[in-house]
Every structure is written in C-alpha cells, then in structure tokens.
Design a protein around this nucleic acid. Structure first.
Lengths: 377, 377
DNA sequence: GCGCGCTTTGGCAGCGCTGCCATCCCGTAG
DNA sequence: CTACGGGATGGCAGCGCTGCCAAAGCGCGC
C-alpha cells in the first residue's frame, strides 16, 4: 500500500493527508467514537474565545481588536502584532452573526433555484459562488423543486437572514413571494429569464426568443413536420416560454406542431427517451423533434442510436442548453448554448455592486444565447 | 401571443405570473429603473418592523410575540390571533441573525465541496438540502475548486457563521483546516470517503474498495492489458485512492497498468476523450480502459463511437459514479454507482441529530456502492 | 516649554432577539 | 370565601460585535 502516497507525492499534493501522516490508509486507525464527538459532549469545551478575550489577552481594548482584525480604521503596527498573536494563540474565530447584527450589513447572499437535478443550475451556482467568494460574500442556497409554494417559503426563510441580495430563478412567483421580495428592502435579482417584468434586476436571456430562434433554424433547414418532446411544463415556465416562442414562429408560417408529448415528470434523459419513443409510435412522418432541453434530447439521441435511426436524415433533433456532452457526441447535438456560469457571475456582481453609478445600469441584463448548429438538425 | 397563458393554464400553473397579470409577455412593460431600486435608494423605506413593533401593535409584550411566532411556550388562542394579525399587518419578517445570536443556536449548516462542474456534488447537495430544509436548516455552501488552501479559507469563513454542523468533502485537509475543525466545537461531517481517520463523522464509501472492485471486475471478464485515463490526481485524492485500490489488485495478480494517461485538467468529457486518444495513439494492444470517472469515460465512449471501435470487443471501458446518462447509452456504461443523494441526506440527518442516543452511532457511515455491469466491460 | 493637529485608543450603547424569572390571573378545591 | 396550582404574560439582561465619540498620545513648530 505504498501506491497512494507515491501518487500523491508525484502529483505534488498539498493536502495534509491522514494517509500520509498516519499509519497508512489501509490500517483503519479506529479513532473510535470515544476519541470524537462523545468526548466533546462529556467534557464541555471552554466556550469559544470572543473579541473581549482577545482584547484582554493582547492588553488592548475591544474596538482596537475589532479594527485590527478587519483592517479598518487606524492602529499602530506593534498593536497589530500583539492582537494578531493573541488571536492566533486563542484560536479566535470571529462571530459573523454578532458582527452582522451590530453592523446591520450581512455578507450573505440568498440563492433560490428550482432544481439541482441537472447541471444547469449548478453552473449558475458555480459562477455566482466564484464571484461572491472573491468579494467575501457567502451563498445560502435553497431548492424549490419547481414548486411555487416551496419557493415562497424558501424566499421567506432567506429573507430572515437579511441577505445583502437575493437571487431567484425566473420571473414567476406567487403573489405572496413577490410582495415579500418587493417590500423587503433587499436587492432582488431574477435569473435566466427576461420575458416579463422584474422586481428589481433580471439577468439572463429571453426564452421566448430562444424558442423562436430554434424554430427558425429548423424551418431554415427545411423541416416542416415537427414534434415536441418536453417535461412537466406547468412547473417550468421557462420551458413553456420556449415552446410558446417556437409555436409562434411555426404559426407565422402557417404550420403547427405535428405532435406534442409532455412527460409528466421532471426533466431527465430517461424522460426524453420515453417521450420520443411514444412520439415515434404514434405520429408517422415526423421529420424533426424539438426537445425541452438537452437532457431530454440526449435521451432521444441515444434511442435513435440504439434503433439505428440515422441522424439527421431520418430524424432531426434539437435541444436546449448546450451541455458539454452534446459537443463530443459522434454527431454533435444541435442546440442553443446559454451562458449559465456568466449569468451566475453577473448576478453576483450586481448583488454586491454599490450602485452609486450614474447613470444607473439597466434593470435587465441580457447575456444572450448562441445557436450551435451541431449535426443533428 | 396567447400561447403561453394557454399552456400555463392547461398545465394548471400555480405561479402568479406577470405574463398572466400584466400586459402580456411581449409588451416589455418597461418597468424602468425609476420604478425599481433607484427609487428605493431615494426614499429610504422605513426600517423593517421588529419584534418590538409587532408587540406594540398587538398590545402584548415582546416575549409573548416571540413565543407565539415560534410556537414555543404557552399563550392563549386569542393572544395568538392578535399577534399573528399584527405581524401580518406589519409584514414582519423575523431576524434570524438576532435570533441566532440570542439563542446561540444557528440553523445554518456549512457545506464545503470541491466542485460544481459535474453532477456529482450537486447530487450530494440535493440530498442534503432536501433533508436540511425539512428540519428548518439552511445550507451555506462554498466551493474549493479542489484547492486545499481555498478549502481551508472556506472552512474558516463557514465557521464564522457558527453553523450547527459543517460538511466537508473528503478526509484530506490542510493541517490548519483540520485544527480549525477539530477545535471549533462544531460537528464535522466528512463526505464521500472512508479511507482514513475522520475528525468526527464520515459518510460515504471506500474509494480504495471501489478501485479494487473495478479491477476485480475487469480481471474477471478476462481483461489483462489495462490502461488508466484520469484527470488531475494531486487535487482529487479520492480518484487517487480509487486508482491505488485498482493497482493493488492488479499487482496481486502480478499485473500492472499497461498505460496511464493523466490529463492535467479538471474532469470533463473532453479530457476523457483527449486522454483516450493519446492512449490509443501510444499503447498498442490495450484491451480495457479504467477511467477516473463517468464523465471521462463518456468522452472515451463517444470517441469509440466516432471511430467505429466496437465496445466492448475491441475495447472495454469502465467508469465511476453511475450517472444517469450512462444507463441510456446504446451500450450502457459499465461503472460503479454511488449513493450520492443518500450520502447528502444521511449527512444532513447526522448534522441535525441531537446525539443523545446510547449507544452512540458509529462515526463511520458506509453507504456502499453498486457495481453496474453495463455493456462496455 | 507650550499648544496644535493628527493618529491611536478605549468606553459604551446599541443591533433584534431569546431565556430566565417574577408576576399576574384564573379556576378550583377546601 | 380563601388559598393554591398552573397557565399566561411582561421585564430585562445579555448574545458578541460594531460604530460613535471622547480621550489620550505624540511629533513638531514657534
């Protein structure tokens, strides 16, 4: 069992690995319960050091410690020394709860998203978290599972932490949630949708326009008999808007959807596969399928692969999101790429921005989207 | 533009959609800056209502309001009525910052994960968030990007919020981070790894054992000339452990890796594709490839598909994670499925559990893994 | 040697809520 | 009619920190 240490060393690991310092990973050094929490419970550790403790230890006043630790205000170098030493000695960890209450300026940013089941919102989260962290803010997240009521509750719960800003996916919320946000005094940033009025700021793209662009693309490629395969639309208003834009363009050309299969389930590859299966069994002569998103489209794609349906000659597929996997497929998936990480990052910047600028920024930040022609449509 | 409302109505939407109540989505009702934040800045809204305001409005004492709003302690039904009415009237949103400081019992749980770039940690997050929410807790997240130093900083930052518990991925941390966690008095839960000593509690599976099981499977299928394609191992100690276990079993059979390609990049389908490409160009006669995870394996899978390499006859592929997409591939990916959502949920339960039980739970919670034979190896 | 102006420092009142305790009120038993 | 027990209620001292202000220290010019 020398393999792991070797690998770690070879790679220049900087972790302080128990596998390297202990008796080796295989030995299962049974630290045991007694050596852990249980003991902590028995011997109640001395309460965590406070500012006052550090002040006493350093022989200075509390406000001086506060100033030094926040590098805010003025103090002499040697005082700084003394304070830092005392803080380190006591293992002082500042209490942000108290700090926030006193300064009434939270470094928390609430993020309420509908789902973590595919990579879309994690991407947004990633962009936001990166940017937020750089400014010393921390994201508090809640997942609504596409349920308006849970979203409302999550929003209320977030607001109770008095965040510096609140990011919410979409523009549709319960009346109660909307009222809460509008009257909270917290900066509200709505994500991933621009089709409708926003409370304060909105960052994203137009789903309606995405749907239209998708339809125009398929039409331009000569497809006329088009079907739609989607997931639960009542919950996902943005998918509904894409479909609305898509149908609008069809209608303008005197066309209509050949078939529509809405799987009563959240989005997933399995749902996409099942949906396409049903469409193929039912509607004859379908030339192209518009999916509610890439996950659904992947399901369709692999169904075609399994059944030997040649893409795009026998059937064209079009998705939405522009996920990485679609690009390495033998035939890259035709889709629309959205700037998810950038949306998160931009939202984070807006969340933290002081807004002293004049003229003020536009309340709508359109980060657009990109049609990826691919090879399936 | 009547399509969207129709769709929403058909689906039984419960959102209070601006598209339904406003002048329609297309009309771009230009709420404008003046109607939003800017105005809020100009006319400083009255400070948010406090407990005292509600108490005054309801004609009762502060503690009574506190008791009613938390349904804690005793109060008469009619008092409850009055308080609730007053709170609603004033749009009172409790201040958890103050509440937490006063009760010294935070309802925050810190979660530090290395990445949001694939679905693995979002899955964990999903399990945790669901379970936490049910208990009235909220997750605060931080992403370390597989950087030990950023992890350390994130841990320190989280601890400053005095969370009820702290979840961290992996068992390897900087010495400083380990010391911080051990002495913080906060319950620490380490995720996704059991191979090594934990600080308090660990929930997950043995990566070493995963690697061993993978090797045994490939060996049992008769593969002898095996290559490895992985991503940056120095950062991802769990991937390193899997490889260590894998090589251990090979060694026990007097075998060794035929080739090893470590792409100097984070995990991705592209990296997997590039890695396999290089292995194929270099090593001749490789029968099977063990990938550091499913994302990497997908890259390899599609490369084979593009090049007409028949799976598994000409080349066998084996991954790790058991992602959904692997199951709908024409040849399902041979891999090992991990209970990620369950790990998150279990960790959340442990985070919140009172731990008064006797005998105490084992500090290690092994949720195991499942080898999915699939069709590629 | 004195006063001025600046940097450095300490004291202390809250931030909004909870927990504890004293008080009050009511129904009921004696 | 009085005493007693328990539910219902209010008062108030913190929780740990920050922001404000007063005070002290310090260097320098005249």
């Amino acid at each position: 069992m020398a393999a792991l240490p070797e690998i770690l060393a070879r790679g220049g690991a900087r972790w302080d690995s128990p596998a390297r310092t202990g008796s080796g990973i295989m030995s299962e050094r049974r630290t045991g319960w007694e050596g852990n929490i249980r003991v902590d419970d028995r011997v109640p550790r001395p309460p965590a050091a406070t500012l006052a403790d550090v002040a006493a230890a350093a022989g200075v006043g509390e406000s001086t410690v506060s100033r030094v630790l926040r590098s805010h205000g003025s103090f002499s170098p040697k005082t700084r020394e003394r304070v830092m030493a005392a803080a380190a000695r006591l293992g002082y960890v500042p209490n942000r709860i108290a700090g926030t209450l006193a300064s009434s300026g939270s470094k928390l940013v609430g993020i309420v998203i509908p789902s973590l089941a595919n990579i879309v919102f994690p991407d947004v989260l990633r962009g936001a978290s990166q940017s937020l962290e750089a400014d010393g803010y921390q994201p508090v997240i809640a997942v609504s599972e596409y349920d308006p009521l849970r979203e409302e509750q999550s929003i209320a719960a977030m607001l109770a932490w008095r965040p510096a800003a609140l990011m919410v996916a979409g523009l549709e919320h319960t009346a109660q949630a909307r009222a809460l946000m509008a009257s909270s005094g917290t900066r509200i940033i709505e994500l991933m949708d621009l089709d409708g009025p926003s409370i304060h700021l909105a960052v994203g793209y137009s789903n309606l326009e995405v749907g239209r662009a998708s339809a125009r693309h398929l039409l331009a490629r000569g497809y006329r008999r088009i079907a739609y395969v989607g997931h639960d639309l009542a919950a996902d208003t943005r998918a509904a808007k894409r479909l609305a834009g898509f149908e609008q363009v069809l209608r303008e050309q005197g066309l209509a959807l050949q078939d529509r299969e809405t799987v009563a389930a959240p989005t997933s590859v399995e749902a996409g596969q099942a949906g396409l299966e049903r469409v193929l069994a039912r509607a004859k002569g379908v030339e192209a399928v518009y999916f509610s998103n890439d996950d659904m489209a992947f399901g369709g794609y692999f169904l075609c692969l399994s059944r030997g349906i040649v893409l795009p000659e026998k059937l064209a597929l079009f998705g939405f999101n522009g996920l990485a996997i679609g690009r390495v497929l033998p035939q890259p998936l035709s889709t629309i790429r959205t700037p998810r990480v950038e949306i998160g990052a931009a939202a984070a910047r807006l969340a933290v921005a002081p807004f002293t600028c004049d003229p003020p920024p536009d309340p709508r930040l359109d980060l657009g989207f990109e049609l990826v022609p691919g090879g399936t449509a």
